[in-house]
Design a protein around this nucleic acid. Sequence first.
DNA 1: ACAGTTTCCCGTAAATGC
DNA 2: TGCATTTACGGGAAACTG
Lengths: 424, 424
Amino acid sequence: VDLFRNLMKSAFVVERQPCMPMHPDRPLVIKTGVQFTKSEFPELNYQLKIKVCIDKSRKFNILGTNTKVMNMEESNNGSLSAEFKHLTLREQRCGNGGRTNSDASLIVTEELHLITFETEVYHQGLKIDLETHSLPVVVISNICQMPNAWASILWYNMLTNHPKNVNFYTKPPVGTWDQVAEVLSWQAVCKLLRLPDHLGQVLQGKHGWQRLLLWVWLDNIIDLVKKYILALWNEGYIMGFISKERERALLNPKPPGTFLLRFSESSKEGGITFTWVEKDISGKTQMQSVEPYTKQQLNNMSFADIIMGYKIMDATNILVSPLVYLYPDIPKDEAFGKYCRPEAAPEPEMGGDSTSTIQPYLKTKFICVTPTNSGNTSDLFPMSPRTLDSLMHNEVEANPSHLEAGNTDWFEERKRGVERNSYY
Amino acid sequence: VDLFRNLMKSAFVVERQPCMPMHPDRPLVIKTGVQFTKSEFPELNYQLKIKVCIDKSRKFNILGTNTKVMNMEESNNGSLSAEFKHLTLREQRCGNGGRTNSDASLIVTEELHLITFETEVYHQGLKIDLETHSLPVVVISNICQMPNAWASILWYNMLTNHPKNVNFYTKPPVGTWDQVAEVLSWQAVCKLLRLPDHLGQVLQGKHGWQRLLLWVWLDNIIDLVKKYILALWNEGYIMGFISKERERALLNPKPPGTFLLRFSESSKEGGITFTWVEKDISGKTQMQSVEPYTKQQLNNMSFADIIMGYKIMDATNILVSPLVYLYPDIPKDEAFGKYCRPEAAPEPEMGGDSTSTIQPYLKTKFICVTPTNSGNTSDLFPMSPRTLDSLMHNEVEANPSHLEAGNTDWFEERKRGVERNSYY
DNA sequence: ACAGTTTCCCGTAAATGC
DNA sequence: TGCATTTACGGGAAACTG
């Protein structure tokens, strides 16, 4: 019996990372009604029937075949394994009473649950109940809860090695910025983010709200990068997180028309913008940024197309593009031309005779323009760019710089880093 | 007993129109996994338990409480009624064999099913099985099948009064254009469409493919109108279906800058475009149309915004708007100004101090431009507008006009019609 | 391999519960 | 009443299945 118990302990050790991938990047977060999987279960060398369960703090039901007999696989180490697929979780909404939340003090994305795997072993007439469990998981009901849920998972695994402390968030510890950075580095894209120090200060707060606010912002940016601008990101074209002071220091010595791409820090949704150099009439160097583009807008138009088509409209309705060189000195066309949408081929007609007739429609394209005031038509710009720029300048001065001296060329450094790690 | 049977017959009469609304506009189409309802069931004046079933041609299961005891309601006519809510259909995918389709010759959207309502009545010691059924319904598994399914429902109800001819589509009859027009008039928006005669010719074909092709096109336009341009439609601003010849006849005497809005007939997805008058250098009157805007594009930008912002960019990058008067002579601003998106208010900052600092970003807006060739930057327009226009003109000449003489001002007529019927 | 059909599941909107 | 959470389901894409 002792022999068994020892074997158990080692066999049932809970691996740290991959447990229940729902979204492959977000283990340990399970959405109700969405399938999840538990696979590659190292086991004892016996014919065992395993049953999957979940803790009873809330009434969840596991749908799907939740028991399985393990097979001897010709797998890696010759141990037994079982794979649970097509499992879904559904909360049991009892007819009327029975409130859902076991601990009403916790919000649902900080409520931790355990998924257990039970089996029975008979050896020399003795019945032994074996049981192991997953790391704590967070159960969500809508994907919009994912950022918060994932923040909880990261925070937990960052600050504890306890395998089943489901009450972690009743008094969560405070983490340091270095720990946060390390956790973020677990994620592929985040490895490249190189978050600036000033963001870490936000995390020094107690826990909860501020922490989550930052995380939601970061997560939205990660999402934006992965979905919309990954190619540009991998090219190293996107400066990403950069303080306004550093931006100014980089762009100031550059010729007008030089621009860089950076994330916006001003909105919770996360956005990306570009800042360029220009000289005003007096010859003074100015920086200009456009209002950040959000996922919503990138859904319809690639960022490369936006950059290539961006124009300033002056008072006489003449369009000029203020973007010429991507920092440090890459011509715009060279950098983004290959990522622009190819010209749409003419579509076939609905009737039969699509061969001879040519589409009699004028082709159009959407471009993004900044109208200056005094334009003759419906211009939406109540304030001149000069005024805005001076305001921006003032704001920059109001925030003293935190620039660290050593990091001379972050852009070049990160680009080399990208070339080493090709995650996508 | 005869008394009962007679009562049954009248009590169980199947109402023609509203039967199982899933999409409120599309009765008799049920999507698996989506709830549907059967309500207000006129019944005999006895305590009856009703059970909902579906025919067994495919293995569908009805989820939800499919039996119900009828209550005496203080309803309209004092008859009994039962309401079935939260019913969903799920196809039973047997483990391996058992092909789904009962009649493989029919596509799934032409496969008709009956939903039956069964009950038992005991009277004077005699047990009588009562049963009624819905009109034939179409079961779909994805919303993208809705246009075809709805076409089947319309076609069926247009051409037969049979209450349960589930084999209708094994040899469907041919319908006339008048019948189609009548069926289309059952739908709110379609009442206003006033389809031109030449579309009816397509429907004279055998059945099936061509019929569906037309329907899908019409349905997409109906959808586009309802979702994106209903306000403009109700104002009577949208000409809608108009032949190129009639368009030319209407616009030709008008001053340059006059434009009208019409649907595109060139793409199955359905789109909307505008055509305007201009004079070329020689003083000759020309018509121009832009490539039609689809739902995809209207998702991001309202049609009013597109119209107000539309510009032609000439070789020197100067923008001019070719749109001045909506046909017949409404100034563009007057017609569409109130439907343009209001200027975005500046968003609060993420930190706390959102009171004093002003967003230092340049506001932008997307506009739709038609670049002419010889522009200096990435222009996508390989053919001059003149060339295109002459091609268009040729195509128009190639299709002889079908204009009927009596219909002098369709626009005004339809606008009055709109004012009479305010469906939305 | 392929096309018709279904499943999967995000993300917006609405409903629901506390 | 308001907010937190869940449900509903359209729609795009992947998976399925003869």
